[in-house]
Amino acid sequence: MSKLLKVVLLGCLSMQAVWASEAKLEKMSVATDKPSLARGAEDLMNDCHSCHSLKYINYRDLLSLGVDKQKVDGWRGDAPLDSPLMSQMSEADDMATFAKVPPDLSLMARARDGGSNYVYSYLIGYYTGPDGVTGNHIFPETKMPDPLGISGATDAAQRSGMQDTAKSIVSFLSWASDPHESDRIRLGYYVMGYLFVLTTLLYFLKKQIWSRLK
């Protein structure tokens, strides 16, 4: 029977090889602490929100991350705290400008193969070609103009600053795509601990009960 297990494991490994086809993406580790997320929220509001909506996130959520109340009030204007982060552009304007509606970003960090790494690689993937035209390594057909201006970065310091901005935006997007992730992981440790104790008890009880047969 251990043979069967080995066969299954081998199968899993070969599937892993398929998923690894996203290897060309730049890796980044997502920040989960509130100050980083609040900074990411601000960067996103400055760099992305004029065109992109986040319809499953509202202004109250930003306050819960610790974003400054005055800034939030500035962004929301007259809108109530519970209104979602809708972009300022109407769909008609979007169509006129880009010939498509910029996608909602609420779930973006989970809506592409490669997840956060994809979004990060995409944001920093802009370059200026020899003919002076801006392109993107990750998504060549993109219609979005370089939001961080990284294609025009002149020196390494400027570039690494923009990479930090991209990281903070992606961290925020990752949180936005599943706000309960940290709760989930915390609860998961308790559940695993409990199950370990219970299963150990069941194991010894099983041994005790079956020992009567011999």
Binding site: A111, G115, G188, T199, Y203
Partner: peptide, 29 residues
Amino acid sequence: IKDLYGLGVFLMVYSVFVFFMPDSLIEPA
């Protein structure tokens, strides 16, 4: 008791997926 012990082991594997890698079973698309 044998089934319950097996259930304990199963629930541990199940919980790893539920709590730590639920997205591995949901296609990004």
